[in-house]
């Protein structure tokens, strides 16, 4: 059972991870939800014991109630995050007219190029301090300096 549960968790995680690598933002969120599901399943599986529903009066060994409380909290939180992410996707769509990650990346590249003006201000500071010896009027200047 341990192995089976672990495999199920891993499979669900793999599906989620795979979806998170897609370029479609909706799929990405689907991936997030799946990964969250995998985590929830793991919490549930990490209960200290298994059994019937933990409701009094107890007749038989019950399942771990604490992990159930934990998993409830975790489900709710991942639900909230997913809802927020969905709303964000909508705004991304509004502002880019696309939910395609490759478009978004292109926009990011453009932004990066705008941030990094190709001014080579380094070259100026790289000038040698030969203090005019190498000036165009080289020979004349040198003669004058020898004076």
């Amino acid at each position: 059972m341990i192995l089976a549960t672990s495999l199920a968790i891993a499979a669900m995680f793999a599906a989620g991870a795979y979806l998170m690598l897609k370029r479609d933002l909706i799929r990405l969120i689907a991936g997030m939800i799946l990964i969250g599901n995998a985590a929830n399943l793991f919490i549930m599986a990490s209960g200290l014991r298994r059994g019937a529903a933990p409701i009094l009066p107890l007749d038989e060994p019950t399942a771990d109630p604490l992990v159930q409380a934990m998993v409830l909290t975790a489900i709710v939180i991942s639900f909230a995050t997913a809802a927020l992410a969905l709303a964000l996707v909508y705004r991304v769509y509004i502002s880019h007219y696309s939910v395609d990650l490759s478009r978004l990346s292109a926009a990011e590249e453009q932004q990066a190029e705008r941030d990094e003006p190709m001014t080579e201000d380094l070259r100026e500071s790289v000038r040698d301090d030969t203090d005019g010896e190498a000036s165009p009027d080289g020979r004349h200047a040198r003669e004058a300096a020898i004076r």
């Binding site: 990405l28 985590a39 990490s46 964000l88 996707v89």
Partner: peptide, 27 residues
């Protein structure tokens, strides 16, 4: 919005990892 999306995606992974770690500790 782009930044927010990157942030939410990546940190969600972090949160999930943490959650997994906590339940592993509990177990």
């Amino acid at each position: 919005f782009r930044a927010a999306f990157v942030f939410i995606t990546v940190n969600l992974l972090g949160s999930v990892f943490f959650l997994i770690g906590i339940s592993a500790i509990y177990h």
